[in-house]
Computed example of a mutant assay.
Amino acid sequence: MAVAVARSRRGLKRIVVGRVHSGPRGASRFVLGLLVLGIPLLLALAGPLFAGDAGPRGTSLTPGAGHVLGTDFTGRDVLREVLLGGRSVVTVAVAATALTYAVALPVGFVCALTRRAWLEEVLMRPLDVLLAVPSLLVVLLVATAVRPGPAGLAAVVAVVAIPDAARIVRAAGAEAASRPAVEALRMQGESWARLALGYVGRSVGRTLAADVGVRLTGAVYLVATAAFLGVGVAPDASDWAVMVDRNRAGLSVQPWAAVVPALLIVALTLGGNLLADAALTRPHRTEKNR
């Protein structure tokens, strides 16, 4: 008996110590996420203010020659193109993610909270059809009919992401809606809108925070892929994704023209997911507070 009690105490101590140390880890992850995400965001938002004039073009794909990062495939200064090229990628990806959840949240919560099976079928089955179509194929089909600008590209990326996001919201919301607390609130006459914005919304917050990081990453890469194909942007536009595509042929002689924008895109997605992970870290209580 004494041995069992001692073991249980040691186990409790390990749990408490682990909880004590999980807070600083979450804080360090948050700071790291801010630093990693802050670099591409700062360049994307403030870079055009410091880009300056274009100046004369040099020799294509040449390192140095008076340019800090060399020249690109058209002889333009790579540093200036980096300063100019982030705004389109960031704004389109963020706008697409926002549009995705503007539709996915109400659809998912209605399906999770409604007790009308026909309404759930009407809302979800069309999304299932869209879910079966590859996202890049949708982008290419739209591009063959029209030439979407940045706003149109953001709308297309949002459309292909809505089915996934709506299903996640629905699944997380349905689990929370089945709890006794929600049934008690229903008996008190609470509307589904108040439930979605209240108890159920708070219950699925951690799941949605994780999904936002994944969704933003997917939007960035789909926007970048569309830019590789010339959809939504001009073939020689000042755009990080276009820079990676157009300058990859000269990696052996002038790598910075493709490597730097590629690293900035990776930092954008990595930093976003680090912040999402930090947001998922629960505040833990110490042994004194227990």
Rank of each mutant, 00 (worst) to 15 (best):
A177N: 02
A143D: 02
Y101I: 05
L37S: 00
R147V: 12
S238W: 04
L34P: 05
V159W: 00
A257R: 06
G201F: 06
L274K: 07
L229W: 08
G18D: 04
D277R: 07
P48G: 06
V260F: 07
A93W: 06
R248I: 08
G23V: 11
G52D: 02
A193N: 07
G38Y: 01
V5P: 07
D239C: 09
L141G: 13
A184K: 03
A219L: 12
L41C: 03
R179N: 09
V169E: 08
M1Q: 08
R10C: 12
W256D: 08
L41G: 09
N273P: 05
V68Q: 10
V266F: 10
A193H: 09
A2L: 14
A143N: 03
T100V: 06
A226S: 14
A104N: 07
M187S: 15
N289E: 15
G85Q: 07
L195Y: 02
V138G: 02
W256T: 15
V94G: 01
G189W: 12
T286D: 14
G38Q: 06
D53F: 04
L49D: 07
T225G: 15
R7V: 09
V204R: 00
A161R: 09
A95S: 14
A241I: 00
A4M: 03
L197H: 13
T62L: 11
A172G: 09
A257I: 02
D236H: 13
P40W: 10
V157Q: 03
L208W: 06
R57E: 12
T269Q: 10
A46K: 02
A96Q: 04
T269D: 02
I168M: 13
V220K: 06
R14V: 09
L280Q: 15
A224D: 12
I15G: 10
L222E: 04
G201I: 13
A51H: 04
V110I: 14
R29A: 04
A104E: 08
L197N: 10
V17H: 09
L84I: 09
G232C: 06
L35M: 13
T97D: 05
A237L: 10
G218M: 06
F73G: 11
R170V: 03
G38S: 01
S135Q: 15
T207L: 05
V212F: 00
L43F: 07
P40S: 01
A51F: 02
A176Y: 00
L45E: 08
E287W: 15
T59I: 11
V31K: 07
G198I: 01
E190H: 14
A249H: 03
Y221A: 12
L123E: 02
G173R: 03
G272R: 11
N289F: 12
